[in-house]
């Protein structure tokens, strides 16, 4: 995060020229889009009827009502966009294979190095084998979170089905890996050998419970963070819709929340990935 923040001014300094920094231009653009968006949403908000949760409805992409498991929906659309973003950044961005990287390539390398170092530091040397899996989760969540910040887009990671599936994949994957690697020795993870003998059974119960609620907190953390941020923005947008010229205040508030959400979008992807690494470490080295 710090690298990304410090890397940007350097890039700006290289381009020089422009009087406005790209960041401020983006900010102004966001404020304008929000302003117009608030006027458009005014049409279907009568009075203070705010439906902050309406944005999370899963709608079929091409109309129709029934929702078979293969029907393309908005979720499908934005997952596809996430794939395109990932391919664009990590495959097309690096096709130059330059020794001195272009901007896109250096971002891709930054992401690679960031996740690689995280896996290596947290999971240990033998966790590096699972680096592509962690990278897949991280990159998908990162792309989905940031794509969800585009106005009128859809945040796939705000869906419990999505985050719970990923969390359960991690949970079962890690548990099966631990059982495969250590057999029943994997159960040592529940037996805190550092604690006094009397306390160990009680701690074991607590450890078992905390082990099995891992996927719950793992999934709801991501989903709750994304949902709450977008709902707050929607509520402020609802205020802006009925306030006329006074809408400047909620729009400024939306801008502030939007900045926070940009940070949250990254941090939640990071937290999801690092927790995956922690669980992986537990599976590879069960003893406390």
């Amino acid at each position: 995060m710090a690298e990304a923040a410090s890397g940007k001014p350097k890039a700006e300094a290289k381009t020089g020229g422009g009087r406005f920094s790209p960041a401020s231009l983006v900010l102004i653009a966001i404020i304008l889009v929000m302003f117009f968006a608030s006027y458009f949403t005014k049409a279907d908000v009568s009075g203070l009827q705010i439906h902050p949760m309406k944005q999370f409805v899963v709608k079929p992409l091409f109309g129709g009502k029934e929702l078979a498991f293969y029907t393309p929906t908005v979720v499908t659309l934005w997952m596809g966009v996430a794939i395109l973003a990932v391919v664009g950044l990590l495959v097309l961005g690096t096709r130059g294979r330059a020794i001195v990287p272009s901007r896109v390539q250096s971002v891709a390398e930054l992401l690679y190095g960031f996740v690689y170092k995280m896996v290596e530091d947290v999971s240990g040397k033998d966790g590096v084998k699972y680096f592509p899996h962690v990278m897949t989760l991280f990159v998908f969540i990162l792309a989905a979170n940031f794509l969800g910040l585009i106005p009128y887009s859809y945040t796939t990671t705000s869906q419990l089905a999505v985050t719970a599936t990923m969390a359960l994949l991690v949970f079962f994957g890690v548990t099966l890996l631990g059982l495969y690697k250590h057999g029943l020795g994997f159960l040592k993870i529940f037996w805190v050998s550092g604690a006094p003998l009397l306390l160990r059974p009680i701690l074991a119960i607590i450890e078992v419970i905390s082990y099995f609620v891992r996927p719950v907190s793992h999934s709801i953390r991501l989903m709750g963070n994304m949902m709450a941020g977008h709902a707050v923005i929607k509520v402020f947008a609802g205020f802006a819709g009925v306030m006329g010229l006074g809408a400047v205040a909620p729009i400024l508030a939306i801008t502030a929340v939007f900045a926070l959400e940009t940070l949250v979008a990254f941090i939640q992807a990071y937290v999801f990935a690092i927790l995956t690494c922690v669980y992986l470490r537990d599976a590879l080295h069960p003893g406390h």
Partner: peptide, 19 residues
């Protein structure tokens, strides 16, 4: 990284009340 792991574990209990 340790800090973020600590944050995640501290946050987990708040997530249960949210749930």
């Amino acid at each position: 990284a340790t800090m973020f792991i600590g944050i995640a574990f501290a946050e987990a209990l708040g997530i249960f009340s949210f749930l």
